[in-house]
Design a binder for these strands. Structure first.
Lengths: 184, 184
DNA sequence: CGGCTCGTTCAACGCTCGTACAATGAGACG
DNA sequence: CGTCTCATTGTACGAGCGTTGAACGAGCCG
């Protein structure tokens, strides 16, 4: 509606594409893959549905682009504290990015594959930080706990996790992570 | 295909209805609410799609019937051990029942409401067992951890949780639960 | 200025879904 | 045996989906 009339074509193009991607991320995160329609994404981005197809080729590819995760780095130092820091980031920051994949994963096979890939990289890094024979299992449990907490807090709101301050959650989780990471 | 020709009408009816419900549970658990089609459920149950409608009225109601949970009792005694026992049940036994709700929850609003209701009852019981001021948060975390572990193991198979023996998982989780339950 | 490019819209197709309804045919029952 | 009941089928409809391709029109370039 309100648009600057002066823009080069390349700018316009990039801007529109970015607007579509943002709308797609929010819609996928809010509704999941199946319920998200290309028409709805297009409407949220203020463009025609055909344009989304023209830029992204298919709903599948739109999702793939929307769901690309910036793979976080695991900070050095005490493993338990590093993992808690990563979780804090997820609990404090804008959750949309994580939610796109998390929500869609459960109904969309390709999304699950995508996350599995991202997760395995993660798990390896956790494993490397855990000095124990069953490091893979410990890493898996840590990942599962993080996922469970995020899903409860943002997706399902089953418990008081939804409103609790991140600090309180992290404080209660610290002994868990320490024990899983292999502290004596 | 292979059917006993001798059956009373009431038996036949109940048997068919049960077969549809079983097929519905498995399909909902495997595909989620949106991807599950009445035709697919009917085919899996070996009947016509119209019959499913005739018996259950709508897809919505079929789901509601399929997703009814038998609310487990929380065994008495040490709270941490009791919770671990419940989790063991989920990890050992046939997971379909839990998965129906878990998988559908994330795309289907009514399913989420249904689980929230079931969960709140649960959370209250956990809270009652936890002697601490922040019992609700602790209960929420325990619930989130259980959910995360089940989702990872059966739905996403992100980590080695999928193949690990339940005993190993429970052993690693025991200190976590003890700490959350308020042990010193 | 004139032709080309390309971002964007519009209308339509084919498909699948949930759902409705009439038809069928085998048991129940007097 | 005849009639009613009811489990079960087949067919069809309308809506919504992803996707397509033609058309338009404003920027770009010589």
């Amino acid at each position: 509606m309100t648009e600057q009339p002066r823009r080069t074509r390349a700018q316009q193009r990039r801007d529109t594409e970015a607007r579509i991607l943002t709308a797609a991320r929010e819609t996928f995160a809010g509704l999941g893959y199946e319920r998200t329609t290309i028409r709805a994404v297009a409407a949220a981005a203020g463009v025609n549905a055909g344009l989304v197809m023209h830029y992204f080729g298919s709903k599948e590819e739109l999702f793939a682009r929307a769901a690309r995760l910036s793979s976080h780095e695991l900070p050095p130092g005490d493993p338990a504290e590093a993992l808690l820091a990563v979780l804090r980031e997820r609990l404090d920051g804008e959750p949309v990015a994580s939610l796109v994949l998390l929500r869609s994963m459960l109904t969309h096979a390709e999304a699950a594959d995508g996350l599995r890939e991202a997760a395995s990289e993660w798990l390896e890094r956790i494993e490397a930080a855990v000095p124990a024979g069953d490091a893979d299992l410990r890493a898996g449990l840590i990942g599962a706990i993080m996922m469970g907490v995020v899903v409860d807090r943002y997706l399902l709101k089953l418990s008081s996790l939804a409103e609790a301050p991140a600090d309180d959650i992290l404080a209660l989780l610290r002994p868990c992570f320490e024990s899983l990471v292999g502290a004596r």
